[in-house]
Computed example of a mutant assay.
Amino acid sequence: MSEKNQTNNNSVISLTLGILSLFIPFIGFILGIIGIVFSNKAVKEINTTNENGRGLATAGLICSIIGIILQVLAILGYVAFFSMTVVNNNG
Rank of each mutant, 00 (worst) to 15 (best):
K4L: 14
N5L: 14
Q6E: 15
N8D: 12
N8R: 01
N9F: 13
N10W: 06
S11N: 09
S11A: 15
V12W: 03
I13L: 12
I13Q: 08
L17E: 07
L17H: 11
G18Q: 05
I19Q: 09
L20G: 08
L22N: 00
L22V: 03
F23S: 10
I24V: 15
F26C: 01
G28H: 06
G28Y: 05
F29K: 03
F29W: 11
L31V: 07
G32M: 10
G32T: 09
G35P: 08
G35D: 06
F38A: 13
F38P: 01
S39C: 07
K41E: 08
A42F: 04
A42D: 07
E45L: 14
E45H: 08
I46W: 02
N47I: 13
N47G: 12
T48C: 05
T49G: 02
E51S: 14
N52Q: 13
G53P: 03
R54M: 13
G55E: 09
A57W: 01
A57H: 02
A57I: 01
A59L: 09
G60H: 00
G60W: 01
I62C: 00
C63D: 08
C63K: 03
S64A: 12
S64G: 11
I65L: 11
I65H: 01
I66M: 03
I66S: 10
I69V: 13
V72R: 03
V72D: 00
L73K: 10
I75G: 07
I75H: 00
G77T: 03
G77Y: 01
G77I: 06
Y78D: 08
V79E: 02
F81P: 00
F82H: 03
F82V: 10
S83D: 05
S83L: 12
M84T: 12
V86Y: 05
V87D: 08
V87G: 04
N89C: 06
N89Q: 13
N90P: 00
